[in-house]
């Protein structure tokens, strides 16, 4: 089936089974490898990206549901060479260790900050439900607060 949507600002059409998870279209058809496969059951958040600005676990999101919609992946989070506030904060706090889960966390954070510009620790606990095995949560929390500050100062 032919599905048309916008990804990172560009119009795209793909010819795949309509139930193919968005993750595999993004990774293997469109060759955007920043969105990760972790569990295939929406349990870990490694595949988090945005559909219409909402954080979505793309491993369990059929491609047919993005028809006509806007999809953003980690590759589209920054604009050109300038990093998104979340990526900038992640760098400043030196968050990643192995780094595999980090794009999912950054996408979840970016979506949260659009709704809650100055999240409390409770907001973070509630909205950021991904899994990181290296245990970078401590630095992530600092980076999330820092990203909120960067974002609010640039607006």
């Amino acid at each position: 089936m032919k599905i048309s949507f916008t990804i990172n600002g560009s119009a795209q059409s793909v010819e795949v089974d309509e139930n193919t998870p968005l993750l595999w279209v993004v990774r293997d058809v469109l060759d955007l490898k920043g969105t990760k496969f972790g569990c295939g059951k929406a349990a870990c958040g490694a595949c988090t990206l945005h559909v219409e600005g909402e954080q979505i676990r793309s491993c369990s999101y059929p491609i047919k549901m993005v028809e006509g919609k806007n999809v953003t992946t980690i590759e589209g989070l920054s604009s050109g060479d300038s990093l998104h506030a979340v990526q900038q904060a992640w760098k400043e706090e030196i968050v990643p260790q192995c780094g595999y889960c980090q794009p999912g966390f950054m996408m979840a954070t970016a979506a949260m900050l659009d709704k809650i510009p100055n999240p409390t620790d409770e907001d973070i606990d509630k909205n950021i439900q991904n899994i990181c095995r290296c245990g970078t949560y401590y630095r992530m929390r600092k980076a999330i607060h820092r990203a909120a500050a960067i974002k609010s100062s640039s607006e």
């Binding site: 955007l32 490898k33 920043g34 969105t35 990760k36 992946t73 980690i74 590759e75 920054s78 990093l83 990526q87 992640w90 760098k91 030196i94 968050v95 990643p96 780094g99 595999y100 980090q102 794009p103 950054m106």
Partner: peptide, 11 residues
């Protein structure tokens, strides 16, 4: 660090 915040295909 940079590769890991931009989602570079390194894994």
């Amino acid at each position: 660090l940079h590769d890991k915040v931009i989602g570079a295909p390194i894994f």
